[in-house]
Design a protein around this nucleic acid. Structure first.
Lengths: 225, 225
DNA sequence: GGTTTCGTTTACATGACGTTCACAATTGGA
DNA sequence: TCCAATTGTGAACGTCATGTAAACGAAACC
């Protein structure tokens, strides 16, 4: 049986009722820490997050779900029309969204479609680019076969950059997407972490992360053609 | 540039207008047979199908798009609430749907998210004109296949000029639009940056930016030698 | 041809920006 | 509780991108 994770833990009555009537089994998540308690083999088939009135905790929850060793997927957001623009640049954090307030039939159709699509094979537990290999299952990083001893934030930053090789990210975007909070004065934070990564890469591979002056950083060589 | 296929070929005005305003390029498909004419390397980034009043042809079109050797993907359906149940058991034929009538912001968000998810972050934004290629994502500039090492302002100036090839811009306009502040004493600034660009272009391509005496500069459309 | 007007080119000062270091704050484990 | 590792922040430093001035050259206009 497929079980859905729900956030907030006490969902709106019409949402709970709809899921019950449609035959879905669900369990509430109170806070991001609860994500750790989800057992991989418990049949988790996705999550629904109602973002209204949750402030930043909603996004923290999203990130927590996606950053697990075994990411929870697919994710469906219930979001108000006025919050739509917050979805921009966060496309990989969710799979579908539904405007809140919603029509029961639409939400039911989305949940169905989401679950049906997710069974068509979901992979991606490894990022490989040139000499760099990131094993997302084991949190291991290999550079040219040599294991890199990365800290958590170093790994997260590298993973984000390496997910879109060649693409330039501003410090602000990196702070938002990797650190997960609004840009708030600490632009140097990114620089220092990039520096630490380059130091661990060693002289030979320090250039894997390239500085684009006045813009930001990018991983790997820019695309050609 | 990503091009969207649209069905029906003459989409509802509000749909066409929305896509135009959001900067999407689209082309209409009249009937299922037209699907064969889509060239794989033409930059097709997906399709939007408005299912209302199309009878079975809409579904035939969907199947035609998905049965190609190179399937068109992702696919977004515009569908009336009363037709929702038709989606059941057809999950593999589409990637997302949007209730029709739709709110412009919702549809725009769905199209964006769909495109972002489909090509793993590569939005394919680029400016291409003659031998010059500007990749707006990687901040890379290629001239005749050779990478140009441009500084930030050089890149911004070139991007602005190349966005409107053949059009002449006064120094004042360039200062306002590229530098972003009011003209304030330094008309020579533009000249010097144009010179630096021409120097990096090399002798062969220095004429890509043409001087229009007493007026300003323009990109492209230089006279034959 | 002389003069004027405009664009080109060179040279240079300045400051914006990234790098680096040192250290504080925080966390987690022994 | 102490220690070590991780992470964020502030400051000093070096560099290089950028704007400005000025000399130069080339058209245009008389």
């Amino acid at each position: 049986m497929t079980v859905l994770a729900l956030y907030p833990a006490d969902p709106a009555p019409e949402l709970a009722q709809l899921l019950d009537l449609s035959g879905f089994v669900w369990k509430g998540l109170a806070e991001p820490n609860d994500v750790e308690d989800l057992e991989p083999d418990e049949g988790w088939g996705g999550a629904i997050l109602q973002m209204g009135n949750t402030g930043d905790e909603g996004w923290a929850m999203l990130r927590a779900l996606r950053k697990r060793d075994v990411p929870v997927s697919p994710l469906l957001l219930l979001i108000r029309g006025s919050e739509l623009q917050e979805l921009d640049m966060r496309d990989e954090l969710f799979d579908d969204f539904c405007l809140d307030p919603f029509h029961p039939r639409e939400l039911e159709a989305r949940v169905r479609h989401m679950l049906a699509s997710s069974n068509e094979g979901h992979t991606g537990e490894r990022i490989e680019h040139g000499p760099l290999v990131l094993d997302l299952e084991t949190y291991e990083a290999l550079l040219d076969g040599r294991p890199l001893d990365l800290t958590f934030m170093e790994y997260e930053l590298l993973r984000f950059l390496a997910t879109s090789p060649g693409r330039v990210f501003t410090r602000e975007i990196l702070l938002n997407r990797v650190w997960g909070y609004e840009y708030y004065g600490g632009a140097r934070t990114v620089d220092v972490h990039v520096r630490r990564l380059r130091a661990k890469f060693g002289e030979e591979y320090a250039g894997l992360i390239h500085t684009v002056r006045s813009v930001g950083y990018r991983f790997g060589q820019a695309r050609r053609r």
